[in-house]
Structures are given as C-alpha cells and as structure tokens.
C-alpha cells in the first residue's frame, strides 16, 4: 500500500509539473507550485514509511510551513505589488465598499 501511495503521489507530481509548465496564466502556475509543495510533503511521509525512516516527518513539517509561507508571499506581492504593504488598512477599505 505504501508503494501504491508513493507511486500515486509521483504521478500526481508529474501532473502538477505539467500544469506548472503549460499553465496559461500565472495563477495556474501558482496553484501548481503550491500543489507540488504539498505533494512533496506527502511524498516525504510515504517514502519515509516505505523506507522505515519516519524521522523524516520533522522535515515534512518544515516543508509544509515553508510551502504555505512561500505561496502566500507570492500572492501578497501579486495582490499589492509590494511586500511591505499593510494589509489591514486595505482590507478595511475593501470591506467597507
């Protein structure tokens, strides 16, 4: 079963990479990059259990957090055009409208 899960994750990774390469607009790529990160986390877990090395979970945890942080950084930049923008102000203005 571990083997099946690992191969399924690898196939999913191939699909995500294909989408990241051909994806017509930037959000497709963003979504695909995030998916690749999540799949890398799952691959670590599955492959760790397959090889009998569950210690790799620590690294999987780090990957999960980094993946989210990286994607949100890119999204924030794309939304505001700047990394040092104060999101609370803009959000308040948006919600009022």
């Amino acid at each position: 079963m571990y083997l099946f899960a690992t191969i399924a994750i690898l196939i999913a990774m191939c699909c995500a990479v294909a989408r990241a390469v051909v994806g017509p607009n930037i959000f497709d790529r963003m979504l695909a990059a995030n998916t690749i990160g999540s799949l890398a986390v799952l691959l670590l877990v599955c492959f760790g259990f397959l090889m009998g090395r569950p210690e790799w979970l620590d690294i999987a945890l780090t990957y999960g957090l980094l993946n989210t942080a990286a994607t949100l950084t890119v999204l924030k930049y794309y939304r505001h055009g700047d990394l040092s923008v104060d999101a609370d102000h803009e959000k308040g203005a948006d919600d009022a409208g």
């Binding site: 986390v41 945890l61 989210t68």
Partner: peptide, 23 residues
C-alpha cells in the same frame, strides 16, 4: 507529528487556495 502535519496541510491548504482565488 503526523497529527501536526495533518493539521497544517488540512487547514493551510484551503487557505492558500482561497488566497489564489481571491488574487
């Protein structure tokens, strides 16, 4: 650790997808 990992992926994944949709 697996529970922590599950929590992270389960809750932060939809946050990211939602942020992508919003952007």
């Amino acid at each position: 650790k697996l529970i922590l990992l599950l929590t992270i992926i389960f809750f932060l994944g939809p946050v990211v997808t939602h942020a992508v949709a919003q952007a």
